[in-house]
Simulated assay, not measured.
Amino acid sequence: MNHIVGILVVIIILLTQDYLSTRKNPYLGGIIPLVYIGVISFFFNRLMDSNDNSSTWVILIVALCGLLSSWISGRERFKKKRQKELDRIELQNL
């Protein structure tokens, strides 16, 4: 049951990140990566208490890269959608 809750939390975080990164304000998509960095900084010593430090680093870096790539892809989708709307408006004006 614990694993299911963890998976649901990750899915909710990723969906929220995807939603925030496609909004008009580009800084909204940066909220979750900044919060992630803050939480990791706060609990850094506790995370490094385990014996396998290399896997902990890999997990931290992969998660941050995933959040940032989601932010970047959301911004690109927003720009494409906006450009498509501008092209459609320009076509109607002709």
Results as ranks from 00 to 15, higher is better:
R23K: 12
R46N: 11
L14K: 02
Y27K: 03
S69P: 04
L86F: 10
K81V: 12
S21T: 10
S54W: 11
L20Q: 01
A63Y: 10
D18F: 06
D52W: 02
L64N: 10
S55G: 07
V62D: 01
Q83L: 14
P33M: 03
K81L: 13
R82Q: 11
I72A: 15
S55A: 11
I13E: 04
L64S: 09
V58E: 13
L60F: 09
L67N: 01
G66S: 08
S54Q: 15
I12Y: 06
R23Q: 10
L47Y: 13
L20H: 00
I72W: 15
K81A: 15
L20W: 00
N25K: 15
S21Y: 06
R75S: 07
L60S: 10
K80P: 07
I72G: 13
S70Q: 02
G74Q: 06
S50P: 08
I7S: 08
L34N: 01
L20S: 00
K84S: 13
G66D: 04
S55Y: 10
I13R: 08
P33W: 05
N25Y: 12
P33V: 02
P33D: 01
A63I: 11
N45L: 13
N51V: 13
L68T: 03
S50Q: 15
V9F: 02
L28I: 04
I37P: 04
Q83G: 14
L20D: 00
L64G: 09
V39T: 01
T22R: 14
S21V: 08
I61V: 15
S41W: 10
Q17E: 08
I40D: 07
T56V: 14
K84N: 12
L28V: 03
I40G: 07
G30Q: 00
F43E: 01
D87C: 00
I13S: 04
V5L: 01
Y27P: 00
S69A: 12
G74E: 05
V10Y: 12
L14G: 01
S55P: 02
L64K: 10
V5E: 00
L15Q: 06
K79W: 06
F78Q: 13
K80S: 13
L86R: 13
V62Y: 02
G38A: 15
L68A: 01
I11Q: 05
F42Q: 02
R82K: 12
I37T: 06
W71A: 04
V39K: 00
K80G: 09
S70P: 00
Q83P: 07
C65A: 15
I11L: 07
Q83M: 14
W57I: 12
V9S: 02
W57C: 08
Q17V: 07
G66I: 09
R75C: 05
K81G: 14
G30Y: 00
W71E: 02
F42A: 02
I31T: 08
Q17W: 07
E76Q: 10
S69T: 14
G6D: 13
R23M: 08
Y36R: 02
C65R: 15
T22V: 14
D49P: 06
W71T: 04
A63G: 11
L28Q: 06
